[in-house]
Amino acid sequence: MAMEVLSRLLADYRELNTFHGIKISRGSPKITHLLFADDIFLFCHATTDDILTLKAVFDLFSDLSGQEINLSKSSIHFSRNVPSDLRRTLCTLIGIKEMSSESRYLGHKQEAFSASLQAFKSEISTYLIQFSNLYSKPRSEILTLSWVQQCLQLLPSMNRAFKKLMVDINYPMNRWQVPLVDDYLKESLKLLELLNSITSSLSHLGQARMSLSYALSLLENSPSLAMKTLEAIQPLGSNKKWEGEETKARQEVVRYSSGEEWVICQAMAIMKVVGFWICGVVASSLCGDIESCLKLRKLIEELPNSSLMSLHVSVCEEMMKKGGLFEVKEVNKGVVQLGAVTCGGSSSDEAEELRRRVEILGKLLKDVGNEVNQLFSEVLLERNNLLNSLHQKQ
């Protein structure tokens, strides 16, 4: 009933031509207000006359209905052509604040966006907590190739949550604006580069494993040549591609004009931080690079997830103890043991044990390699789908 009073007052002032609405097109009628449940959307020119008229309507409404407009819960959205000094003047005249960039959608819609974003954050947090809990006690499992594979499997889980978010807010990629598309293409390209770097580390370990297999094949007929060829696996060492990326990943989130874009941008920022941490930890583990692993702490300090920080600390502690992957350390121990007994005589048991370890290493490297290749293909497919949708819009 009260909203009907306010609606009637606005209509009367419009008929008197003292309150001007807006036209959404040249031939359309002027719109002064829209009602939705307990919310009202008001449309007027950015002039002192319209604002003072609107203030007079509010005062008259309060006198007639006995109710007051809650100005503290109201806000004004200006078009981009309104100068900042005029905005401040008009806001002061009516006593209503200007709407922030992330609140361009009022009432239920902004609340829905916030709820969808919070649901996305909770889902990502749940994945990280569950993963962290898997290795909270059996810390010996950390820095195994099976653990590396499970780390990488967090990436498609996050991507599924991101797709669900796009559905929830009804903002698929084919509706994205150019700045958001550019950001996504840039970050997905960086992810492809990081996956390529991981592939290089896997390739290095694979080649070292093949050299060991070849040396073991020589052992029976040419033991002296086999021992000359038999060498422990050396880590690839620090990968310079990773340096400085922990700072880039924390760059300030760009402000976007629409509520959907703001939600997607916030979600992409989270995926960027967590995704880079995952790739960074995996690469550091494969290279035995404790220094790079320690630097990743800066990346996640601002992420409100204590489980991820706890896991990161555990990974760094285990890397300082072990120096690298468990399977690689086991193979290298076998190389040392075989070399020791070969000098003294029979070495069949040690050779067989080393073959077993090398075979396990090869199988696990293949599994992780397949995981990385699958991730690479999925990221590439998403990029291509986005680019195709842009071409279709043109």
Rank of each mutant, 00 (worst) to 15 (best):
L10K: 04
L10V: 14
A11I: 02
D12W: 06
D12M: 08
D12R: 13
Y13V: 14
Y13K: 15
E15Y: 08
L16W: 12
N17M: 10
N17D: 12
T18M: 10
F19C: 03
F19Y: 14
H20E: 13
G21L: 03
I22S: 03
K23A: 04
I24W: 09
I24P: 02
S25H: 14
R26F: 13
R26V: 11
R26A: 14
G27N: 12
S28H: 11
S28G: 06
P29M: 08
P29D: 06
P29F: 02
K30T: 10
I31R: 01
I31L: 12
T32Y: 02
T32M: 05
T32A: 02
H33D: 05
L34Y: 05
L34Q: 09
L35W: 09
L35V: 08
L35P: 02
F36N: 11
F36Q: 14
A37T: 06
D38E: 12
D39R: 07
D39S: 06
D39W: 06
I40D: 00
I40A: 10
I40P: 00
F41W: 12
L42E: 08
F43A: 03
F43D: 08
F43S: 02
C44P: 04
C44T: 08
A46L: 10
T48S: 12
T48K: 13
T48A: 15
D49W: 07
D49T: 12
T53G: 04
T53K: 06
T53R: 03
T53E: 04
L54R: 04
K55A: 07
K55Q: 12
F58H: 01
D59T: 11
L60P: 01
L60V: 10
S62G: 08
S65C: 05
G66C: 03
I69S: 03
I69E: 09
I69W: 09
N70I: 00
N70P: 03
N70E: 02
L71E: 08
L71K: 15
K73L: 10
S75P: 00
S75C: 11
S75A: 15
I76S: 06
I76V: 12
F78Q: 02
S79G: 15
S79R: 07
R80N: 08
R80K: 11
R80E: 09
N81Y: 07
V82I: 14
P83H: 08
P83E: 03
S84L: 14
S84T: 14
S84F: 10
D85I: 12
D85V: 15
